[in-house]
């Protein structure tokens, strides 16, 4: 008699724990959906274009790929100009300071700063965002020769931008 009662109490606790967990998961999902804006770490150039004109006082991050052949040094060489693109839209970024070791053409980057009056993005910080592929240099070189590299790069660009 008391054994079955203890069993039903255990089952009750099990249901209670399950229900509580479901409720919390639901609340978390709702909260994260509601705050999706603030969970977003950076905007793509297309999202920036859609929001423009952007208040010059607003601090934001723009992310994308460094366009091939777009890196230029200005002034005494401490300021770098480059174009960040998501293949649909692009934005010119100027940055004064030391760039991360991974910074180069075709590399994913996230720049933090604000827009200036000429529609240029003045970055206070530039971070490199790399892809999730790891391989030895010889393998990378072999892939480059075989032509599979373009496919991989396109896939990475796509990954980077969504």
């Amino acid at each position: 008699m008391s054994l079955s009662r203890a069993k039903s109490r255990k089952r009750q606790r099990l249901y209670l724990a399950g229900a509580a967990l479901l409720a919390i998961a639901g609340a978390a999902a709702l909260a994260l959906t509601a705050f999706e804006e603030s969970v977003v770490f950076f905007f793509s150039p297309t999202e920036i274009a859609a929001q423009s004109p952007i208040d010059e006082a607003r601090r934001l991050r723009v992310g994308g790929l460094v366009e091939e052949g777009s890196i230029t040094k200005v002034g005494s060489g401490e300021t770098t100009l480059f174009v960040v693109t998501d293949m649909a839209n692009s934005i010119t970024v100027s940055y004064t300071g030391i760039l991360p070791d991974l910074f180069r053409e075709g590399q994913g980057v996230v720049a933090e700063g604000s827009m200036n009056s000429n529609g240029q993005f003045v970055a206070r910080e530039v971070l490199a965002k790399h892809d999730e592929n790891y391989m030895p240099r010889e393998v990378a070189d072999a892939l480059k020769e075989s032509g599979y590299w373009q496919e991989l790069e396109a896939k990475n660009a796509e990954n980077m931008l969504n």
């Binding site: 391989m135 990954n159 969504n162």
Partner: peptide
């Protein structure tokens, strides 16, 4: 789910690991 500075998964992913066997 969100865009992050951290790259996506390399090992536990749908189309197999994107890490060379030597690593």
């Amino acid at each position: 789910w969100w865009n992050t500075l951290h790259q996506p998964a390399s090992v536990a992913r749908m189309d197999g690991p994107s890490i060379d066997p030597s690593m």
